[in-house]
Structures are given as structure tokens and as C-alpha cells.
Design a protein around this nucleic acid. Structure first.
Lengths: 102, 102
DNA sequence: TAAAAATACTCCATAGGTATTTTAT
DNA sequence: ATAAAATACCTATGGAGTATTTTTA
């Protein structure tokens, strides 16, 4: 599971349409279709229902979506943390704060 | 920034040594060195101090580490969420289905 | 039948491997 | 002198593109 796949999944989920999602990602449709399929294969479950109008999230996809967004959020936070620090921002929070805290 | 780079960074941070980290990752040393450098380039900041005894985290690396771990945690949660659901929701045959793995 | 997704290729960027060199104590 | 990281070079996997085919309301 790559970051790209997660990003692609979120885009398709939001657009409900591989073509539009591909345009938004500045990508062509076939590689996007392939990556979505490959993600489904890896997860062992289909995430979308294919219809002649586009792609609709299945329950499994609905369940996966918030996790996918969380990964992207954390990645974003990770990228920013050094920039923030370079600008003199105070100590960051909310990242590894839960190391062993049930 | 790829998932692999983040995984590699955490391993090197924990081992303090590219060679050991590479062994742990079942990877050879040069690609690991390169990926760490490439991550530092992308972030625009060095993460480690290179010494003849190994690699020591710089303050920037210390700051980045919890974020890196958070990304890996979220990824793990994302991968698991469908497996978890599969063990609870659509019970195929019978009820007490444990780890469905023929 | 008319949209959409899926497939069949082709190309190339890059991740990883081996061998070697550089560096710092 | 030694143990580590860094570099050079090569190979191959796979991600993206274009053209085309298949699907289903």
C-alpha cells in the first residue's frame, strides 16, 4: 500500500468517478484504475461498486476512507513539522504522543 | 516522501547505524543510505549527524521521529480495518469464525 | 447506445544490488 | 587502521502514457 494509492483512493471516493479523479490528480484514467484495483487486491476486499455512472463506495470503502484520510493527515503533519520548526514555531504536538497509552 | 522512506528513517533512528538498520530491513546498505539522503533532501533538513560510529539523530530528526511513527501507525490501522471488519461483520458460515486463513 | 471502467501494449524513472571509495577517529 | 557512510554503475520492477476494448443501465 503506497501513499499514492491512498491518495488515489480518496480522490476516487470523493469524485465517485475515475475520470474526474484522474483529472484532479493530473493523471490519466488507466493507471488510476489499475492502482485502485491493486489496492483492492492487497486489502483483499473491493472498495467500490462499478456502475456505468462511475464508482460508488461499498461499505468496506466507507470503512477504509477515514483511515486513508488519517494517513494523509499524518503525512502532511510530518512534512510540515520541520518547516514549522524552521520558522521558530513552538514544539509540535499530537504526533507520537500516544506511544504506549491504551 | 514514501512509506518506505519513513520506515527506513525509523529503523535507522532506532539502530543508530545504517548497516544494522539495513540488515533489519533486509536491504543492503547503499540503497538505505540513499533513501535517507533523499528524504533529508526532500524535507530540506538533515535528520542525522554522521559519525564514524554510526548515525545520531539531530534535533530535526528527533522532531520528525514521532510523526514518522504516527504515519506508520495509521497505515497499520488502515490495513487492519478491513480485516477486523471481515472478522465481525459478514460471518460467512457459522458464528465463531476466528482468523479466517485457510 | 453512450457513458464509464478495464485491458493491452510501450516506455522510462527509480528502487535495489554489487563493488568500491571516501571519511573521520 | 578501521569501521562506518557515501558513491559509481548496473539491472529490473512497476508506474504512467496512448490506444483500444468491454461493460451495463
Amino acid at each position: 500500500m503506497s501513499v499514492a494509492q491512498i491518495r488515489y483512493f480518496v480522490a476516487v471516493a470523493e469524485e465517485g468517478h475515475v475520470g474526474r479523479a484522474a483529472r484532479r490528480l493530473r493523471l490519466s484514467q488507466p493507471p488510476l484504475t489499475r492502482q485502485i484495483r491493486s489496492l483492492e487486491d492487497e486489502l483483499g476486499a473491493p472498495l467500490f461498486e462499478r456502475t456505468p455512472r462511475g464508482m460508488r463506495l461499498l461499505p468496506s470503502g466507507e470503512r477504509f476512507l477515514p483511515h486513508a484520510r488519517a494517513v494523509l493527515r499524518e503525512l502532511d503533519a510530518a512534512s510540515r513539522c520541520l518547516v514549522d520548526a524552521a520558522q521558530g514555531a513552538p514544539a509540535p504536538d499530537g504526533a507520537g504522543t500516544r506511544t504506549a497509552e491504551p
